[in-house]
Design a protein around this nucleic acid. Structure first.
Lengths: 219, 219
DNA sequence: GTCGCCCGGTGGACGCTGTCCACATTGCTA
DNA sequence: TAGCAATGTGGACAGCGTCCACCGGGCGAC
């Protein structure tokens, strides 16, 4: 039907600029992370990410099943960044493993880093916990030795606290969940929730109250 | 230019079916609530709400500045529903004001109702706390006598607990925030967060641990 | 009682999004 | 070296939020 004009060379299409293997995938995730940083999970727009990478929208579908799959990867990256921040803060606390003061300091560092991340990177924080219902990344390596996940690090700090004798062994079991809940709830309520517009002074006081409440629960 | 065919009566447009005053606005909010119930804040789609009301999409702009304004109204309604559920559950606890056991029971009812709402209405729960950055509804009537907001009710229960002598007066100030944080964090983590896929048994145990942790902090 | 305004509806359009299909080209592999 | 999978392109579609122009009817001012 459609007679190709012979004057049109078949290679008229733009030559696809070949990139090193996996570069587009990594680039899409990186671009998505920046979008999430600026505007939370809803700002992770597939077409915008492909634009940042310099590729046509459909190219994304060679690397992700759909937008939610990309978002899941971005969420995982955000969660990793949170874990890294916490690990870095914990590493700054001096003192040998098992020293009571150091152990307490490390637990505090974990909570502080968590809250600082939520405050300084609200978009990434929200994204880290906004994993789409499908595509949930596997928490398979939970038993891994060096667990850099927030929960893993919290568990490590509590184990040390128990080893140091600060935390009663009988109270250790499962206590990471109330603590995590309290810190996470605090971060959410003051970050994106109803308390988000509270003046800084009030927010700080609420933070102190909550951390003191947790410390009380460990004594 | 365009010669109007004289056979076309000028009243060819469909006669706008007039509705009672404010009906469309209320209908849009109600439709939005149902959408939110089924799919969370992202599911509150303006066009879909107008469809449910039986009106053209643009009609929504006579009642709301934009989609976010509609969403804000839906969020407020969701928050009200949460408050109503809590109040209903609290009202079921027998015992006069100031009775120690009754006061403890009422605080427990508040927490339980909060968690039950998050579990049974995940969409509405998420929506209640997803108020868009602009259009934040005014928390102006905070000092109102009958404060049915979740925080207001929590404060009431804690005041009663203090009046009943169960809670040290010295520890009363600001303790609503750690408690709210813990319960809210628990609801979020087990509802939409990383703990959402935990088996029911584990979830229940985590819930018990957290509530016990809070109870400990009051003793 | 009539006029005029504005409230609240309609129709149509635009740009943006996610997603699907068909096709082209490259580079590894058999 | 032939072929095939991987990975890019172009074009299209429906649905979304939003803007503009129009318009009819109810209500208050005169």
């Amino acid at each position: 039907m459609k007679a190709d004009p012979p004057t049109d060379p078949p290679a008229a299409r733009t030559p696809p600029a070949r990139r090193p293997r996996g570069a587009v995938r990594e680039g899409l995730i990186a671009a998505g992370v920046e979008l999430a940083r600026a505007g939370g999970p809803d700002a992770v727009v597939l077409r915008e990410a492909t634009r940042a990478v310099g590729v046509v929208p459909n190219a994304a579908y060679r690397h992700f099943a759909d937008r939610d799959a990309l978002l899941a990867a971005v969420c995982a990256a955000a969660m990793r960044e949170l874990g890294d921040r916490m690990a870095a803060e914990v590493a700054r606390v001096p003192g040998a493993y098992g020293d009571a003061a150091a152990a307490s300091g490390r637990l505090g560092a974990i909570g502080t880093a968590y809250l600082a991340f939520a405050r300084e990177e609200p978009g990434l924080f929200a994204t880290a916990f906004a994993v789409p219902q499908q595509h949930a990344y596997a928490p398979a390596d939970e038993g891994a030795e060096a667990d850099r996940s927030p929960l893993g690090q919290l568990r490590g700090a509590l184990d040390e606290l128990a080893d140091a004798g600060v935390l009663d062994r009988g109270r250790r079991a499962g206590i990471e969940y109330p603590i995590w809940s309290a810190v996470h709830g605090l971060a959410v309520l003051t970050g994106q929730g109803p308390l988000r517009n509270a003046p800084d002074q009030d927010r700080r006081r609420i933070e102190e109250l909550t951390l003191a409440f947790i410390a009380d629960g460990l004594a």
